[in-house]
Nucleic acid binder design. Structure first.
Lengths: 157, 157
DNA sequence: CAATGTGGTCAATCAAGTTGACTATTTTGT
DNA sequence: ACAAAATAGTCAACTTGATTGACCACATTG
């Protein structure tokens, strides 16, 4: 696999590969730190639970998946010790999902690893180009999802 | 969902969202053209089958999945009329997967749609910035996968 | 030409999602 | 005030795209 081979990749492949490359290294390193039971799909759920917890419905909307799917994911994360349910203060039907101490520790580890990878990327392409890259991607995502983000556009770590 | 909300997204989220945004529009439009039975996972398989066909093992290596998974995908694509098996010229065990006419037509449709989306993106951020974006992503993907691309780094359309 | 390797299939399982039916509460309209 | 409708969540069965393990037929190699 040489550099030339990559030059032929179109934008879709580039986005896909850069994303999966990042995710793969992240989860590899999380595994080494003892967080092997966290999978990519769990990441954006954590982002919504921080900082004050969230209900199942809120998580479902945020992730663009059904509440049943959220329910299963939450079950798994409770069993693995990353989150715990709290009784809802005003609604007896509802429950609020919050991070446990282990949950917070994996979020912290994730942030450190991502900062590290991003630093390596900056050393590779330069800080200015990295800034441009982020700006452009932000613009593209924003324009493409004008007023209707969420459903089906399901980000993961 | 306002622009400010996106500004807080980290690189991982940006890559994930720009990718899924692209894929989602692509498959939406393929559906409208009558290719609703093609799913994102099939895309990179087509890229390897073009132009001269490929064996199951070659596809498995290219996609970084097992030969059993390839076998199932091929079954589905044969049933849907996008590819067909040809007998291997020298190895009686093997078979070569090639595109049918319908296979070629969906590949062509895919390319037109992607070109169209990319054109819109260029109008949005400018041709120079698009060039930089591609260069930088190419660089990042290349550096990160130095000599070990493929397994687990599984690109799709 | 026997032993080993390789291309492919079958079957069972898993992960992450879906739809549909249901219960228990809460909110709303008259 | 209270019946009707909406909402939060669960249970169960199914789907898609993957996995592992066992196996068969053919190819390659000492």
């Amino acid at each position: 696999m040489n550099h030339q081979a990559f030059s032929e990749l179109d934008l879709t492949s580039l986005l896909s590969l850069s994303y999966s490359t990042l995710i793969y290294e992240l989860h590899d390193r999380l595994s080494e730190l003892g967080y092997g039971d966290i999978r990519p799909a769990h990441g954006f759920m954590f982002r919504r639970i921080i900082p004050n917890g969230a209900t199942g419905i809120e998580l479902a909307e945020h992730l663009g998946i059904t509440k049943q799917a959220v329910s299963k994911m939450v079950d798994y994360l409770v069993k693995s010790g990353y989150v715990k349910p709290q009784t809802h203060p005003t609604d007896k039907r509802g429950k609020i999902i919050v991070l446990t101490e282990r949950g917070w520790s994996v979020v912290k580890a994730k942030e450190e690893i991502l900062a590290d990878i991003q630093q390596r990327w900056i050393e590779n392409i330069g800080a200015e180009r990295m800034q441009l890259l982020k700006e452009d991607l932000t613009k593209l995502v924003y324009e493409a999802n004008e007023g209707k983000l969420s459903s089906k556009v399901r980000p993961v770590w």
